[in-house]
Computed example of a mutant assay.
Amino acid sequence: MAEDFTVTGTSPWIHIDLSYWDDLTRDRLPQLFRKKSFLYHQDEMPEYVYIIKSGRVRVTSYRSEGEEKQLYIAEQGAMCGEFACIQNHPHDASAVAIVDSMVYCIPYQVVEKHMRGDWTMAQKVMRVICRKSNIFLGQILELSFDQSLQRVARILLDIAAQYGEKRPDGSVLITIKFTHQDIASMINTSRVTASNIFNDFLEKGTISRENGYYSLRDPGELESLLGEH
C-alpha cells in the first residue's frame, strides 16, 4: 500500500484484521461467493451477518429507476448485513462479490448471543457501525459541499491509499482496475461527468493510464484540489 499521502477518514474501503472476529468465526467454514454473486439483496429480510475472509464485496443501494449508490467496499475482516439484523428490518442495500470471495455467514442469533454475553464483542460490532456511519456522513458532506471534481480527486486518493504502489519517481500505481461508471456510482455523479474529469486529468498529466491501470503522477496535486471549492 502506498504511503505518505492523505488517506481520508471517510474512505469507503473497510479492512479489519481477521483475528478481530475470532470468537465469531472459530470452527466455522467460510462460503465461496463467485464474482458478481449476491450475499444478500436489498429489501429481503436478513438471516446472517457476513464477515469477509478474502476477496471484496460491494454494498450498494438501488432505486426503482435503476440508479445505484455504492456505499462501501467490504474487504478482509469487514462485517456487513448487521444493520438489518439489529433492526430486524429488510436490508437497505445489496451486497455483491466484486471478485471471488470467501465469506463467513453467521446466523444473527449467534452474533446477538455473543453481543449479549460479551461486552467486548458488543463494542467491536459498534465500532464497525461507527466506522460506517463516518463513511456515510462523509458522503453526505461531499454531496452537500464538494463539486464533482473534488469528489473524483478524493476517491482516487482513497483507491490509491488502499491499492497503490509507490514508484521511484513519486507516482503511485493503482493495482486494481475500475471503470468510470464504478467511480460515478461511488460519488453519485453521472458516468459522463466522471469520464470528462478523468479525461481532463489525463490531458493535464495529473494521472496516466497504461494497460487499463491508472497512476497518480503526484498525489499532492490531487490533495490540493480538496481545498478548492
Rank of each mutant, 00 (worst) to 15 (best):
L39Y: 00
L222T: 00
F33I: 03
H114V: 04
L173S: 12
Q42C: 06
K53I: 08
T120S: 08
C85Y: 05
D158V: 08
L226I: 05
M115Y: 09
G205R: 00
F145G: 00
I16G: 02
L222P: 02
T175W: 02
T189G: 07
F145N: 01
C80F: 02
P30R: 08
R167D: 06
Y213G: 00
C85M: 07
T175P: 09
R209V: 09
R63C: 02
Y40E: 02
I159Y: 01
S64Y: 14
E3S: 11
D146M: 12
S190I: 07
D158A: 15
L225Y: 03
R209W: 04
N88G: 01
E165N: 09
R116N: 13
P46F: 02
S190R: 05
Q162R: 12
V110W: 08
Q123M: 09
N211T: 01
W13H: 08
R116A: 05
V125W: 07
R217W: 02
H89K: 13
E44L: 05
G66F: 11
Y40S: 05
V103P: 06
Q139C: 05
T189C: 12
I174T: 02
Q139L: 07
N188Q: 07
T120Y: 05
T189D: 05
R217H: 12
T60R: 08
Q150A: 11
A194H: 00
E47K: 10
G170M: 07
I197S: 03
E82C: 04
D4Y: 13
K177S: 08
M79C: 11
Y48Q: 07
M115S: 13
I159V: 11
D146R: 12
G212D: 01
D169I: 13
C130S: 15
A93S: 12
A93V: 07
M121V: 13
D27Q: 14
V152W: 00
E223R: 01
H229R: 15
G170N: 08
